[in-house]
């Protein structure tokens, strides 16, 4: 076992220890692991099963139910573009093209440097300021091609201070 994996396992145990072991703790545990590691891998599922006693199949069933929980490793920044009607009518398709062109990946993919993942999401409640997207925990509305590039640059240029912190609305 490499040092890196060892450290990840310890971190996982630290995350688990914050929660109870009841079935009602399952979703909060999974949400937290997903936030912390960006995804929930098989090893984490097994550890959660050991911790809570919930069989791995059921945990996997819960993970695959929720669109924000994933088993696939995502980028450091997950861009979730809203594709529901108000954003769609406000020019979502143009934003799709800009994001794909600027990042050089298609939706469903992650950049080679592991920085960005592109995903669609359903209505994020930003319909009054469309088109809109979430980047990790932060919502961005009123997107234009220029603004999208600005936002992406701000992530590329600065060391994004608080990857796991809570964002806000811009």
């Amino acid at each position: 076992m490499t040092a890196g994996i060892r450290a990840a396992t310890d971190e996982l145990q630290d995350v688990l220890r914050k929660f109870g072991k009841n079935r009602t703790d399952l979703l909060p545990i999974l949400v937290e692991i997903n936030r912390y590691f960006g995804h929930i891998d098989s090893n984490s599922i097994i550890e959660v099963s050991r911790y809570t006693g919930v069989p791995i199949g059921e945990i996997h069933g819960v993970i695959t139910f929720y669109s924000f929980l994933g088993q696939k490793k995502r980028g450091r920044f997950v861009i979730r573009l809203c594709r529901t009607i108000s954003c769609d009518m406000a020019g979502k398709d143009q934003i799709v093209r800009v994001l794909e062109k600027e990042l050089g990946i298609c939706f469903g993919e992650t950049t080679d440097d592991g920085m960005f993942s592109l995903e669609y999401t359903n209505c994020i409640g930003m319909c009054n300021n469309p088109p809109a997207m979430l980047i990790n925990d932060k919502a961005y509305g009123g997107l234009t091609p220029e603004r999208v590039v600005e936002i992406l640059d701000s992530f590329k240029l600065s060391e994004y201070q608080d990857m796991f912190g809570y964002g806000g609305v811009e």
Binding site: T84, I85, S86, N122, C123, G125, M126, C127, N128
Partner: peptide, 9 residues
């Protein structure tokens, strides 16, 4: 709140 078009909550 997930209904498309709502953001009042």
């Amino acid at each position: 709140e997930g209904e498309p078009g709502t953001f009042k909550d």
